[in-house]
Design a protein around this nucleic acid. Structure first.
Lengths: 333, 333
DNA sequence: TTGAAAGCGCTAACAT
DNA sequence: ATGTTAGCGCTTTCAA
């Protein structure tokens, strides 16, 4: 039989209230003698307080939900780690949910988390669906969204990165380095980041007096396969280009692979720029020049905002826009 | 104010017991009329059952803890995904804990999870410390260890992969392909997998009549940096080798990088074999020949065993040893 | 087919 | 400095 606060109280010949105070360090008014006696008993009997019972009263579970599309996608482990690090520091647990960007799963997780009485939710999804917002609106707990917008929500926080200016910066750099015909292998245009990066790309072209050529723009998915295929497609369509601005690093890695196979050298024949700066970018040959996105920071900051909101539900969060940083390595000249 | 089972009961003019039965689908004996009335009220008022209150009574939280060293390490996201997929299917939540292989953190997480009343724990750590087992022994809940041993535990499950035979297979293949002086850039020998892989390496050498040369064995960490440095060190020590068997893929990737920088071609001058088969292995140039470890499977299977143990605490689990598979790609000839 | 009542393990006034 | 008491929201016999 599991030992409870009652057992300890009885053994120490005090009330459960006293034990409770000691366990929760609200023991300024407890005599040293009793405290020690109780502590010894706790130690001796290996008593573990049932925090779930506390939660019933305090209405706080000290756990938060983290809904991401897929922890297996190299983008997310870092944000998850950021979330967990801050949460753990503050004594919170994080419940990991992989939604696969599937609306049904998202809704189902939101429901489950709510039933489990998490104190708040951090939500990431790469798609632009707004239906989900209805579910969130029903929620009585704070929600922070990372890297996307959910319309119709108020008093909640939002963390994004400045994709437009990041892309602008990256493409401007390529132009500066002498690349003239820059292909853009973008991500799915149903996602806000992809849209923003495309916008930054166009803007950089415009501002540098280069006419946007829609034949140089391809839309695909955020993976290496698409980068590989995209290059092959462009090549077989005899499209001329001397640079590629990729929607993310995975696309860039796939693109480089295709380029190499076709005997094109990176960065001399074709310069390649990624986006994200995942670990792989530093390890691939040539190392990727890329726009660094502060993934860990995003998670960390999201947890920080969420926990602030949990502690002070009235506090207004101003949305956070994290800055990107150009990282120059070997895939551009 | 949050709406409770009492509110619904009052509105439907039934007892809370009736509502409870309906919510939990124990409603064979509830008239269709009442059920519908209650269900409508639940829907209309957006009632969310407080599962934490249920847990107090049922002694089941339907959540499990997952303690891994670092979700940011490419090995673990897949394991975590496997765990989450199975757990979710069975209606369990997973609480993610990054221990950084730090004994204090491990112990602290075990305590926290226990207080949160998780139903079981899946534990991975790359080190061989046994102190942790004391903490586990105190636990009243099932624990499954993944990829490592914890001594002194009974009635619990263990999942490992057959590292020895995987390494044996890999090294044998290299020998078969004509590599004669095979360097081994291993992981930290405080970890069981590293030890086992080393053993497989030696055994393959022995069985093929090649004398083990300790100058060809280097111990380091499981990352690209070490692979890079290891090669540089071997080269600067004028050690002769025509193949490298790496402790994992990250080491292999670092090794290839160093080899390339020194003008050595892979696989012609030096063949390189990895271990793990992480996604990166397929994306790097040249693609890595490697020993594939079923990461996702490990997590999935671990969750399966754990949940079985939660449901039937008396059931004896037989330890599972997962098989590796040789994946031949471009980094060996 | 339904409900009354006891209680899970704990906390938080409020007394003393 | 410590104890009494009244629940938190729910489930589960057992009785009606």
């Amino acid at each position: 039989m599991k030992i409870t606060i009652k057992d300890i109280a009885k053994m120490a010949d005090v009330s459960t209230a006293t034990v409770s105070k000691i366990v929760n360090h609200k023991d300024q008014n407890i005599s040293h003698a009793t405290r020690q006696r109780v502590l010894d008993l706790i130690e001796a009997h290996n008593y573990v307080p049932n925090r779930i019972a506390s939660s019933m009263i305090t209405k706080k579970t000290h756990s938060i939900g983290l809904i991401i599309p897929d922890i297996t996608n190299p983008f997310f482990p870092e944000v998850a780690r950021g979330v967990e690090d801050y949460a753990n520091m503050e004594g919170y647990h994080v419940v990991l949910c992989n939604s696969d960007n599937d609306l049904d799963k998202e809704v189902s997780y939101i429901g489950m988390l709510q039933e489990k009485m998490v104190d708040g939710i951090i939500f990431t999804s790469s798609s632009l669906r707004n239906k989900i917002s209805k579910e969130f609106l029903k929620l009585q707990i704070p929600v922070i969204t990372v890297d996307r917008d959910i319309t119709g929500m108020k008093a909640q926080g939002k963390i994004t990165v400045d994709n437009t200016s990041g892309a602008y910066q990256g493409v401007s750099y390529m132009i500066e380095r002498g690349y003239k015909k820059i292909l853009h292998l973008g991500g799915p245009m149903t996602s806000k980041p992809a849209l923003d990066r495309f916008e930054g790309y166009r803007k950089a072209l415009d501002d540098n007096g280069i006419q946007f050529d829609e034949k140089l723009f391809f839309e695909g998915n955020y993976n290496a396969q698409w980068g590989y295929e995209g290059v092959l497609e462009a090549l077989s369509n005899k499209i001329e280009f001397d640079g590629i601005f990729c929607g993310n690093d995975m696309i860039a890695i796939g693109a480089i692979k295709a380029l190499n196979e076709k005997g094109l050298s990176v960065p001399d024949d074709v310069g390649v720029m990624g986006f994200d700066d995942i670990y792989m970018a530093t390890v691939v040959t040539p190392n990727l020049t890329t726009v660094c996105q502060p993934n860990y920071q995003m998670g960390y900051k999201a947890a920080e905002m969420l926990i602030e909101l949990i502690k002070h539900p009235e506090s207004k969060m101003t949305d956070v826009v994290l800055k990107t940083k150009l990282v120059i390595r070997e895939s551009t000249k």
